[in-house]
Amino acid sequence: MHKHTGTPLVELRDISISFGGIKAVDHVSVDLYPGEVVGLLGHNGAGKSTLIKCLSGAYQKDAGEIMINGQKVEITNPRDARHHNIETIYQTLALADNLNAASNLFLGRELVTAGGFVDEARMEAETRKIMGRLNPNFRKFNVPVSALSGGQRQSVAIARAVYFNAKILIMDEPTAALGPHETQMVAELIGELKKQGLGIFLIEHDIHAVMDLCDRAVVMKNGQRVGCVNVGDVTDDDILGMIIMGKKPPQAY
């Protein structure tokens, strides 16, 4: 079913990173194709967030290679990642609570006027446009995002990724802080982005969300890759077995 041909959008090859002698990620390889959602699973501390932070520029790998569209690239900070159209939605929602939605959406990439000043009005107008598409009920444009609900905050974070034409989207437990209705909203959005040809890495704990949303799942344990499965070919018990016991089902590769 998922016999991919051509160049993957992203290839992480043999990535290793350690902190103070502890190997957080130990020679792990993962790839991602356009229009595909790849789940990254594992216990807390399995190394999935650490691995993905090497791609988003938050951490620097000790060894290994990152290929984007078949080209080897160096990503040393979040700005580099953005240059390669990699956008990240963090578990912690990486928003500055004291700033409003528009300021957060454009943080680090502010629109400026010809005179070099921040163009507040244009940023707000753009924010209204994109939020109208993603979350039409969103009205709170002029308050700090600390006054928003979890779902509203999440939609600001997602709007940031969508607005800047992400090709590669990293979502670190995007629904962890959300209610059922908001979770549904995010799920629909992931489907929508997939159709547009984005590649999405989804770090997720909830096995049902993985079965619903992902095409493939890569399981990690103690910093090492257990295996990769096509979600359509396995049961959730198979995946749980991989996460808990590190047991590789026959379909895995």
Partner: peptide, 12 residues
């Protein structure tokens, strides 16, 4: 001031 981590992740 609002979130130093978010600022760093935004490339500041």
């Amino acid at each position: 001031g609002g979130n130093p981590e978010a600022a760093a992740l935004a490339g500041i």
